[in-house]
Write a protein that binds this DNA or RNA. Structure first.
Lengths: 182, 182
DNA sequence: TCCAGACCGTCCGATTCGGACTGGCCTAGA
DNA sequence: TCTAGGCCAGTCCGAATCGGACGGTCTGGA
């Protein structure tokens, strides 16, 4: 029950369990993979380690299978819910916003290669964003718009919009690889 | 001269030095801070450690001040230029694209709090994106559109567009915090 | 019954992180 | 000229993170 500092991973785990009920680490891994993982990847080892830490600190309780695959089923506690709610309401904890995109990093150095290479990069990025957009639309189509999923679907909308903007941007780059003005 | 694997940080350092000429780690830190750092932060300790690694492996050469602050000025070598160019042209190395935004993570769990809290979050995000947008426009205004900066400015355009989309998105959320449909 | 392949979990070395600290340099004011 | 204080520049290190590799478990079909 030692005191720990809560990271984004902590809040993710708490939120997932609060939202969908008791879960094993594997469940978390699957949930992340089909949702938030599209924008923000969390290493699976964290999704195993983090609930242990949270349980030790009293934010979760663990129920372990006696035999076989010693799966541990985690449930959220009152303390966990409080911490989650406090974080969700804490407007000072929302700062920070990062886009890590290898393609953009390359474009930043586009002046060091010829425009054919820039065009090739742009086309590659276009196909990537088209693929992502398609996958997001598939997920969207397969989900009922109902209560539980309303907010996750909303973040998905943002993902789609960002993807679309990127697609347009790279299309423009592919058309005029060596031009700076719009 | 041992062989090392090149990370995004490696390519950033190589690209910066290739693009702007010899630089110290501190120069790199400043450069990153006013440009790519807006989307992708690199810890300063990396910006000191990475050139050392790159120099050991022959991608950079270091010239150290004899006295005083023992600053090290790094220059790129032929090997460094080749590696950078190869990376820029390697279309298989562009995968990966991540958006890490605490606000979006919170929205994902929006169903667990009341709509006032969601609205407050949205408003906070709006002001953040407005601020970022303003800063990007300031940077843009202060840069001549000339050759060297053409590609960095282009990535800045993308940053602006993404920020604008986020701003619109959060505006919509602020207006209708509890509605899922557009 | 046996096997293949998916499922599930753990472990660990290597890397990354960022805060804290040290010390040099510069300028202004006495 | 001297020196105090603020910025400049770099180093260090414990802690957190990463992700690959491995090992055990289960299910269904031959």
């Amino acid at each position: 029950m030692s005191s720990i500092t809560l990271t984004p991973t902590s809040h993710l785990v708490l939120g997932l369990i609060a939202g969908t009920g008791p879960a094993t680490s594997y469940d978390l891994k699957k949930l992340v993979g089909i949702s938030i993982g599209y924008f923000w990847t969390f290493p699976h080892s964290q999704l195993y380690a983090e609930p242990v830490r949270l349980a030790e600190a009293g934010y979760l309780t663990a129920e372990e299978e006696a035999r076989g695959r010693r799966r541990r089923l985690y449930s959220i506690t009152g303390k966990g819910r409080e911490a989650l709610s406090a974080w969700l309401r804490d407007s000072s904890a929302s700062e920070g916003y990062e886009i890590r995109d290898l393609g953009v990093l390359k474009l930043f150095f586009g002046g060091l290669v010829d425009s054919d290479a820039v065009r090739a990069l742009a086309e590659k990025q276009m196909s990537m964003h088209r693929r992502v957009l398609g996958e997001l639309e598939t997920i969207e189509a397969g989900a009922d718009g109902g209560g539980q999923l309303a907010f996750p679907l909303r973040t998905l909308q943002l993902g789609k919009q960002v993807s679309r903007v990127c697609l347009e941007f790279w299309t423009e780059v592919a058309e005029r690889p060596d031009l700076s003005s719009a």
